[in-house]
């Protein structure tokens, strides 16, 4: 699922529970992540971060000599690596605080090993993987770098609104994106009352990306909820 290049990235895992550290390392190693170091305190974590130069840090919030949020601030003084909080603090206020200060993800214990691996992998992919600007659909290719749809020999330009809508759909490929989310992507905050305009834009996008716009295959409607983009995976 993740390239060996991504799996070779250095990971710092900070938690005051040795048993949990052992388990996390075991799970990550089973999944192919090899470069992992652990720390149980803020002080130890800062020291290891300086010597080990991790490329991703997984931080617990409640630590014996401080908390994960202050550790995050300390790490930020010398590195801008992605950070995932993994903590027992599951309150909304804690999650929001973690994400607000700039963490890339926030996971609440207890967690499934698979979920941890996937989240770490996705963060690494976002940071260190190269995003392909070309998205393959059933009847065409979308080139986000040029804001174009390549349909055989034909190149069709995307308008700004179409581009934003398609990007929102691509980010959630295979998942339903609600009408409200798409309106927000195209028109920003307070997107109420744009439902009809959205439908018009969807029609135009279908004309560009579908072979038969009246029978869409890539951009399908989920009645009452929203739209779904199906990407071709070769």
């Amino acid at each position: 699922m993740f390239s060996s290049q991504l799996k070779s990235r250095r990971i710092l895992f900070v938690d005051d529970e040795q048993a949990l550290l052992d388990m996390a390392v075991s799970i990550l190693k089973d999944s192919g992540f090899e470069n992992i170091k652990t720390a149980a305190t803020v002080r130890e974590a800062v020291e290891i971060a300086k010597s080990f130069s991790p490329e991703l840090a997984v931080l617990d919030v409640m630590l014996p000599d401080g908390n994960g949020f202050t550790l995050y601030e300390k790490l930020r003084t010398f590195t801008d690596i992605p950070v995932l909080f993994l903590t027992a603090l599951g309150e909304d206020a804690d999650r929001i605080r973690g994400l607000e200060i700039g963490a890339d993800d926030y996971m609440v214990k207890p967690f499934l090993g698979k979920e941890l691996v996937l989240r770490i992998g996705n963060i690494l992919k976002r940071y260190y993987g190269k995003e392909d600007p070309l998205v393959q659909l059933a009847g065409c290719v979308i080139d986000f770098a040029r804001a174009e749809v390549i349909k055989g020999e034909e190149r069709l330009s995307l308008t700004a609104k179409e581009y934003n809508i398609l990007q929102a759909l691509c980010r959630n490929e295979g998942r339903i994106v609600t009408i409200d989310q798409l309106c927000e992507a195209a028109w920003g905050e307070n997107p109420y009352g744009y439902e009809n305009s959205l439908m018009a834009h969807i029609c135009r996008i279908r004309e560009k990306i579908e072979h038969n716009p009246s029978k869409p295959v890539s951009l399908t409607t989920v009645k009452g909820l929203g739209y779904k983009l199906t990407v071709r995976k070769d």
Partner: peptide, 9 residues
């Protein structure tokens, strides 16, 4: 949460 993490993990 932590012990349950271990169980689940």
């Amino acid at each position: 949460r932590t012990p349950l993490s271990l169980v689940m993990g």
